[in-house]
Design a protein around this nucleic acid. Structure first.
Lengths: 233, 233
DNA sequence: TTATGTGAATCCATTCACAGCT
DNA sequence: AGCTGTGAATGGATTCACATAA
């Protein structure tokens, strides 16, 4: 499934659609309208239709979308058909928690190894995960066919780690260290900064306290909340 | 620091500015221009100036911004002067990792307690953190003065937890469970969905593989990457 | 001269509203 | 009759470019 010019905001919603469709399929629903699906996903119906229109013409007018078919199509766009081999860099509190996170496995993301600078952590760990010395990063990437990495190191070494990953050929990085990584244009990075999220919450809560007017309040990672969203299977 | 009509996208950048300013202050820099600061923060100079203009007039024309003064001002807007008492709901792998995350403490976010449904986990834990039974959620919120919560439970119970938190008076929630929570309009929620982030990466990597054209690629939580961003202290 | 603050222009995203297909 | 797919309209956010102030 190759597509062109899909809006960034659209891409960010596709995983939600896949989830909703999977849930519907489990419930035995065969066909769904944009109205119903959009309600489950918490977006507007027009938005859903426009999002899907970027990927192709999947619906049948007057009827709706084939649930299982649509799910497969979007999943294919997202590359969920293939297996992803994930390397965790930094096996501290956060790194080890992520290594064992059930949510990944359910989605064809397999954590195949971890690396850490601390030699005490090197060796086999609970869940059968092998932790390697950071020097072996390149080897591990090659041997395990790693094509995605999670950086869970302290901030000061994150850029160095990113450079090693890029050298080793990894082109998709999820970064938990609180620094903006700089990487070549053909590498994708997503930053997840927990302290930043807290500060955003703190901002709105502070503003609310100061001026009791109705603030934007519904702060859903940038998109505003819809009233229809109340309904959810 | 009360302000009106600050764009959501602007708010999301303020924490980065504070960080950069703190780093500059440590290096003994007294005054900084929008050009230099924006480079460190990885945004355009005009964007930085416009962002700051929503909060007030902090700069001096022909000169720049007073580093420490500006940091204090933005921090005040974000509500970082006061202490935040954070409750962690769900003391599993992720919850316990977050409880001990150093990045929070550095920013006036203090994890004061956790709750879990599993009675085996109830009691004092490493780092002096008390884990309570989930039934005591309301009491803990009151006794500890909790004003922010992190949901790190499985998806099916997240909405139930959110309802309890709202009942108890918590109006700022960071949600790691992969479901869109629905809450009253005066409560702020930020969703952090790890599997979604991975799927977004997977999308761009898949598209790149399929069509070797130059894709959007630089996928920094929605904002596109700037070439000037290469520089970073 | 230097660098801010900001209207105007541009770009991206969402919503509306309806033509077109089943 | 019903619901998709999509141009057109609206709304937000970013970038430009310059008047303004030190």
């Amino acid at each position: 499934m190759k597509v062109r010019g899909v809006a960034e905001a659209t891409v960010a919603r596709l995983p939600t659609y896949v989830d909703c469709l999977a849930r519907l399929a489990e419930q035995g629903v065969k066909v769904v309208s944009s109205a119903a699906l959009s309600r489950a996903a918490g977006v507007g119906a027009a938005q859903l239709r426009k999002d899907l229109s970027y990927l192709g013409d999947f619906g049948v007018r007057g009827r709706g979308y084939e649930v299982e078919e649509l799910r497969r199509q979007i999943a294919a766009c997202l590359g969920l058909h293939r297996q992803w081999a994930v390397l965790i860099v930094g096996y501290g509190k956060l790194g080890s928690a992520l290594a064992n996170y059930r949510g990944f496995a359910r989605k064809n993301f397999r954590v195949v190894a971890a690396v850490d600078i601390d030699l005490d952590k090197v060796g086999p760990h609970a869940g059968g995960l092998q932790v390697h010395a950071v020097e072996e990063l390149g080897l591990v990437v090659r041997d395990e066919g790693v094509n995605m990495a999670i950086i869970a190191t302290p901030a000061p070494v994150a850029q160095w780690v990113a450079d090693r990953l890029v050298e080793a050929g990894v082109r998709a990085i999820l970064n938990f260290a609180p620094v903006a990584l700089s990487v070549p244009a053909d590498v994708s990075v997503r930053e997840v900064d927990l302290a930043t999220e807290m500060q955003i919450l703190s901002f709105y809560e502070t503003q609310r306290a100061t001026s009791p007017a109705q603030s934007p309040s519904a702060t859903q990672r940038g998109r505003r909340r819809h009233s229809e969203e109340q309904a959810l299977a």
